[in-house]
């Protein structure tokens, strides 16, 4: 057990604390001498319009991912749970986008969304929906929404799987009793399935929320946070600050903000489930 704890502490806990400490300095890879800034980096963050955009976008990621993925995943889980025969194939289908590397997913969808030659616009033209043809990833108003849609495509199957697991843990005789009482499908879902699934739904919601705070890969591949920071999130901005702008201390401050948001989200969900932290983390 000791080696595991040691590796964990060396690669995660120690750097984590170090990040927070480093956020009080400013330095660059070219000029590694550190200058003490105190809370200077944070003061600058407060005035940084890009950080505001990033926070807003992370907010959209959280809200849209929850609102789209949870109900859709629930619908799929309940539907697949009741269509047992075709179960396996459908499960494979909905889960398969998760197997594709995020970079590959990003590349595929970038071509899909291409404003000039993309498959999406050509499909819309063919369907006669000329008004919907758009610039997609190149359009600052749509870039974030377009990438969130891809993320929903990729992860809904995963959340379906988690909910399906919760669904299968509900004993059949409860449903049997409901059927004998003549309860409708909706009432059965509303008054039996949903309450019994409360905990797993909350755990899943935590996964979605934390995932939305950390989101990086798809955005980096598809827009690198552009056009002109329109799709920037904390993780892309942190990466840009550290490794293209070479402002390490500032990037460490952004990373600390991410960490704090993750902690807040976790505490909220732990409160909501009313169970110990260990269990919420156990998702």
């Amino acid at each position: 057990m000791l080696p595991a704890v040691a590796v964990f502490a060396f690669y995660i806990t120690y750097p984590l604390v170090h990040t927070v400490v480093l956020s009080a300095y400013s330095w660059s890879a070219l000029n590694p001498a550190r200058t003490w800034q105190g809370l200077g980096n944070y003061a600058e963050l407060l005035d940084d319009p890009v950080l505001l955009t990033a926070l807003k976008n992370n907010g959209w990621w959280i809200v849209l991912s929850l609102v789209i993925q949870l109900p859709l995943a629930m619908l799929l889980a309940v539907g697949i749970g009741s269509a047992l025969r075709r179960h396996r194939i459908l499960r494979t289908v909905f889960f398969s986008p998760l197997i594709v590397p995020a970079v590959a997913v990003g590349l595929i969808w970038t071509l899909f969304y291409d404003p000039n030659f993309g498959a999406l616009n050509s499909l819309l033209e063919a369907l006669g929906l000329h008004g919907l043809v758009g610039g997609w990833l190149g359009d600052p108003r749509w870039a974030t929404v377009c990438i969130i849609a891809v993320s929903c495509w990729r992860y809904t199957g995963f959340h379906m799987m988690i909910l399906l697991a919760g669904l299968q843990a509900i004993p059949d005789d409860i449903y049997e009793a409901a059927r004998i009482d003549g309860a409708s499908a909706w009432r059965t879902f509303r008054h039996i399935t949903l309450p019994l699934m409360k905990r797993i739904v909350l755990v899943d919601a935590l996964l979605i929320t934390v995932g939305s705070v950390k989101i990086f890969d798809l955005i980096w591949v598809m827009t690198e946070g552009g056009p002109n920071h329109a799709s920037e999130v904390l993780a892309t901005y942190m990466y840009r600050s550290a490794f293209s702008d070479d402002r390490m201390g500032y990037a460490a401050a952004i990373a600390t903000v991410m960490l704090v948001l993750t902690l807040i989200a976790t505490v909220i969900y732990v409160r909501l489930t009313g169970r110990g932290e260990e269990e919420a983390a156990a998702a």
Binding site: F8, Y11, I12, Y14, P15, L16, H18, T19, L22, V210, V213, K214, F216, L234, A235, M238, Y239, A242, M248, A251, A252, A255, T256, M258, L259, T262, T266, A281, A282, A283
Partner: peptide, 12 residues
């Protein structure tokens, strides 16, 4: 560790 973002340890 299940919840910690990779970006939080990237620089150190």
């Amino acid at each position: 560790g299940l919840l910690i973002p990779a970006h939080a340890v990237l620089i150190p």
